[in-house]
Structure formats: C-alpha cells, structure tokens
C-alpha cells in the first residue's frame, strides 16, 4: 500500500490539510496539525497512536461532532466544514454510526428504545419502519431477545453489542468506533471485534480508534498518528517497518 495520500473525489471520507487548534486561556494546543486522508467505501480502518496524539479529535471531526480549525473535509462527496450545527446533526444522523468505549447507552431507555433512538430524530421514518429496523439491527448483533431489558441488566459485552446495533440501525455510511473494547474484558472484547469483522465482511465501512495492536491489525488499514499528524498509513497485511512522515 502506498504511504502517500491522494485526493480522491470518490472517497467516502476525504480530509485535506485538516487542522484543529484548541485555545485554552492563552495556550494554543494543536491537536491535529494537518491531516490528509481518504477512506473508501467498505474499508476497515484503524487509527492508532499514543495518548494525546489526536485520535479522538480526529474521530470527533470525522463524526461531525467537531469542526476543523482549518482544512477541507468531504463526507460522501459533500463538503461539511461550512455546515450549520443543525445540518451537521442531520448528516451525522444519516451518515454516521457511533460506537463508544463506554457504550453510552441511555439508562432510562430499554435496549430496543436505545437502538431506535437515532431513527426517532428523523422525520421521514414511520413508527412501523423504526420498529422493523430496530429489530433487524438487534438481530444482526444477536440481541433481539433482550429488547425489553434496560442497559444495566446487561453485561458490558452485551451493552456494546447493543451500542453496535444502535450504530447500525440508521443505516449509516460509516461506523466510527472509539476504543470499542476499552471497557471490556478480553473475551467480550474479542466478541465485539468479531462482530465488527462480520459487519465489515458484510460491506460496512468502519473507522476504529484503538491503542490495542491486536485489534488494530484486524483492520484492513492502520493509520498511525503522532503529534497530530499521520505518521504511518498502511495495510495491516504489510506492516510498516518504521513510521514515515506522509505529509508536509
């Protein structure tokens, strides 16, 4: 795999010189120092790097939770950096599925309601359709039998499976997973990774942040970040010998 990132208008995700600067009092923190990146439909990408390298910031920008301080971001061919909060919310709802480290299920809602939640934020999905898609998503993760349960009645692994179902329910273009195994023991972590692999095999595009090399190498492609820059981008089948600076 080439280590050089190219601009590609057919990319699902296209980042061109994305920077993110946080201003705290009078201190500037450069969380992302210029990211050039293309992710295509059906890819399974892992983002790795040491703590504080900008992994989570990058994922927030990819997930439209945050906006770049500088640079271009195209999602599915559409530029998103100028979108309003409401438009980003709408796009996030349709194009992005989130899987969090701490599951982030809402304790007051049942499993099925949690999965249905992103669909309730759309005006064009009927109640019957929402139910059908919720059931289908729960079926895909093997949790349909626990639909009426509350999150606190499930194990950590089961909660993460429900979180995956919630991410799938909206039929997003891409699944963004932030340390999906970080709060799980190795057995449950393995199960969740297997589930993500299955989804990828089924055609899903997945971008996963992880600091665990075992899981990073499950992805087709691993991107290493350091000090807010991509220092390595390679197919997992051909690990790089050493980090190489890809961008200026």
């Amino acid at each position: 795999m080439s280590t050089e990132t190219q601009t590609d208008s057919q990319s699902l995700i296209h980042l061109d010189g994305v920077k993110k600067v946080f201003l705290t009092d009078e201190v500037e923190t450069h969380a992302l120092a210029g990211i050039f990146l293309d992710i295509h439909q059906g890819e399974y990408v892992s983002i790795a790097g040491p703590s504080g390298c900008g992994k989570s910031t990058l994922l927030s920008i990819l997930g439209l939770l945050d906006t770049p301080s500088e640079g271009l971001y195209r999602l599915n061919g559409h530029p998103v950096e100028g979108l309003s909060f409401a438009d980003r919310a709408r796009l996030r709802n349709r194009e992005i599925g989130f899987i969090f480290q701490s599951f982030n299920l809402i304790g007051d809602l049942s499993v099925a309601e949690n999965v249905e939640l992103p669909l309730t934020y759309r005006n064009d999905v009927s109640s019957a359709e929402r139910k059908r898609r919720t059931t289908e998503a729960l079926d895909r993760v093997g949790m349909s039998h626990r639909g009426r349960h509350l999150p606190n009645q499930l194990s950590g692994g089961q909660q993460q499976r429900v979180a995956v179902a919630r991410a799938l329910a909206g039929g997003p273009s891409v699944l963004l997973a932030d340390e999906p195994t970080g709060n799980l023991d190795s057995r449950n972590g393995e199960a969740v990774m297997n589930l993500l692999s299955e989804l990828h095999t089924g055609g899903a595009t997945i971008v996963m942040v992880t600091h665990d090399d075992r899981y990073a190498h499950r992805a087709d492609r691993t991107i290493h970040l350091f000090d807010g820059r991509v220092v390595d981008d390679q197919n997992s089948a051909a690990p790089a010998d050493a980090p190489v600076a890809l961008t200026a």
């Binding site: 919310a89 809402i106 934020y121």
Partner: peptide
C-alpha cells in the same frame, strides 16, 4: 450531560 451528548452524537437537533 453524557446522555445529552449521546443524543447529540446520534443526530438529535438542538430543537429536539
């Protein structure tokens, strides 16, 4: 705040 953050991440508008 966490719950609200999750809802926002899932695409809830400010109005909702």
């Amino acid at each position: 705040r966490r719950e609200t953050g999750v809802r926002l991440a899932l695409g809830a508008s400010r109005g909702r």
